[in-house]
Each structure stands twice: as structure tokens, then as C-alpha cells.
Simulated scan of single mutants.
Amino acid sequence: MKFKIDKFILSIIIVVLAAYLFPQLGGNSSPLPLAKIGSIGVSLIFFFYGLKLSPEKIKTGLRNWRLHLLVQTCTFLLFPLIILCFYPLIHSEYDKNIWLAFLFLAALPSTVSSSVVMVSMAKGNIPAAIFNASISGLIGIVVTPLWLGLFLNDTAASYDLGEIYTKLIIEVVVPVILGLLLHRFWGSLAQKYNSYLTLFDKSIILLIIYKSFCSSFEDKVFSGIDTLNFVFIAVAVLGLFYVVYFITGFVSNKLGFSTEDKITAQFCGTKKSLVHGTVFAKILFPNPSTMGIIILPIMLFHAFQIFVISFIAAHAGNRKELEFNSITD
């Protein structure tokens, strides 16, 4: 099987390198209004997200409730609980910042597009994948800030849960609702030009990443992360993925799920959204210099999940095809 380098991951690497070489263009003293452009872009991302959501499909998807409950429990409960187990190991401010970055990763919703694509490759339950990936983003608007609020209220004077939800309502909830209301009029156009909208989403995410890393490099936030620490973070991210993947598979077997439902549970229940990660970090962590360290684990997780799940999906898809051929021969 041949692997291609994901273009978006390659773009992220280039953007981070550009931020390292030219931090003055996106730093705190930059004359470019990148923060304002990012805020407007975030609202448009979620407007298009709502525009593409089909209320009818969401209603239909509620039927397979055990599968949905498992996926959302893994996404918003299992992930954070695993990270909470390591809270007693924190002994310094540096440790707490890294731990908070992992808690932020753990509290994020599932990604939409890649989950559905991978489930399709593996011949899983596609309608259930669409439902879970879509509803996960809506749940995350409420749940992600709650998880972070439990540990940021005593460490960050600027963290005000009321203010956070006000920003989320203005920049995220209102655009999503507006998109849902206009779905019946423009939903088909959104689906038709989905590739262009996806390109727009990724462009805004790259802009936010560039802005965040420019400020982080300017303020030398990464000065405490040497090669050994970076490798440790990468290994921890990969380990977190595999622990949740195997637990989800084990529970799926115990619940007697079909192969298709098990694939959907494992693929959707282990994914984390880089889109939500970058836009939520922009709201939850108003200090731009700290955003770089906060979104580092989710960037690594995004790369790993695409690589690992694509390999598993291709293998599962080939196996299903072989089973089908053996039946029809």
C-alpha cells in the first residue's frame, strides 16, 4: 500500500516554519489584522458547518442510539478521564501547561470530514458516522469549555466561563444556527461547493496556526521544549490514540456491534478535530503566545490519526472486499 503525504499536514509544517523564520509578520506587534481576519473566518467556518447540516439526517440518525452513546462517551468522557489520571504527576508550571494542552486535546469534539471518509474506506456505517461527526461538533461547543474551566479558573485570571460562552455564542453558535435556518435554501449549494468550503476552512486554520506560532516564537514559549520533550509529547499523543482505539473496540465487541458499527465507533470515537481545536483555542486561551503550546498536541494528533486510521481503513476495506468477492464467486 502506498502512502501519500497529506497536503494539509504538509501545509501546517510549512506554516510553522514560516512563523519561525518570520515571526514579525504575525506577532503581537504586526500591523496585519490577522486576529480580526481569524475571528471573521471562524464565524464563517461555523456558518458553512451549519449550512451543510441536514436536520432530517440528524433526526434519522438518532435511531442507533447505543452506537452514538459509545462514540460521544469516548469523545467527551473517556479521553478526558485518561488525561485526568496523570494530573497527580504535575510538579511544575511547565508540567501543568503541557497537561492542560493534553486536556484540551482530550476535550475536543470529533472531526467531521476525515471520520466520514475513513469510515467509507473501511466499509463501515456511513450514515452513523455522518451523524456522530456532525453532532459531536455541537456538543463540543458546550462540553469543551466546561472541562477546561475546571482547571483554568484557578490558574488563569482572564478565564471567565461566562465571557467564554458569550464569545462562543457570538462566533460559533449564532453562525451555526443561522446556517441551519438557511440549510433548506442554500444547503444544496454548500454540498455542491463543499471542496471550496473545505479549502476555505483549512486556509483559516492555517492563518490561526501561523498567528499563534508567531506569537509563541516571539515570546520564546517553546524554549523549554527540547528534542526529548517533543518526542515524549509525540509518543504520549500516539499512546492516547491507541488506548482509546482499543477500549472502543473492546466495548463494541461486548455490546455485540456489527463489524460496520464497530468500525464507525472506533473511527469516530478516536478522532479529534483540528478545526475545532484551533478555533476553540483562540477563544479559550486569549493570550496568543500560549496558543502554540496548547495546540501542539492536537496538531500531532491530527497527523497521527490520519496516518494510522487511513492504514487501518484501507486494510479493513480490502478485507470486506475480499469477503464480498468470496460470497459472489
Rank of each mutant, 00 (worst) to 15 (best):
60 T>D: 13
148 L>Q: 09
157 A>W: 04
83 I>R: 03
77 L>F: 15
85 C>F: 14
46 F>D: 01
118 M>A: 01
178 L>D: 01
72 Q>G: 05
82 I>G: 01
82 I>Q: 01
82 I>L: 15
93 E>T: 14
98 I>N: 06
141 I>D: 11
111 T>R: 09
68 H>D: 02
175 P>W: 09
78 L>E: 03
115 S>H: 05
53 L>D: 00
94 Y>A: 14
47 F>N: 05
88 P>Q: 07
97 N>M: 14
62 L>R: 12
109 P>D: 01
51 L>Q: 08
67 L>K: 03
138 L>W: 05
80 P>Q: 01
158 S>C: 04
112 V>E: 02
113 S>T: 14
78 L>S: 10
104 F>L: 11
172 V>M: 15
172 V>A: 06
92 S>R: 12
171 E>N: 14
64 N>A: 10
90 I>K: 09
171 E>H: 13
135 I>E: 02
108 L>Y: 03
78 L>A: 13
127 P>M: 11
145 P>N: 06
146 L>E: 04
155 T>K: 14
126 I>W: 08
93 E>D: 15
52 K>D: 10
60 T>V: 00
100 L>E: 11
67 L>W: 00
151 F>C: 11
58 I>A: 04
88 P>T: 10
113 S>M: 13
175 P>S: 11
71 V>L: 05
68 H>G: 02
85 C>E: 04
170 I>S: 07
54 S>R: 09
43 S>K: 08
70 L>T: 10
151 F>V: 12
79 F>W: 12
145 P>K: 07
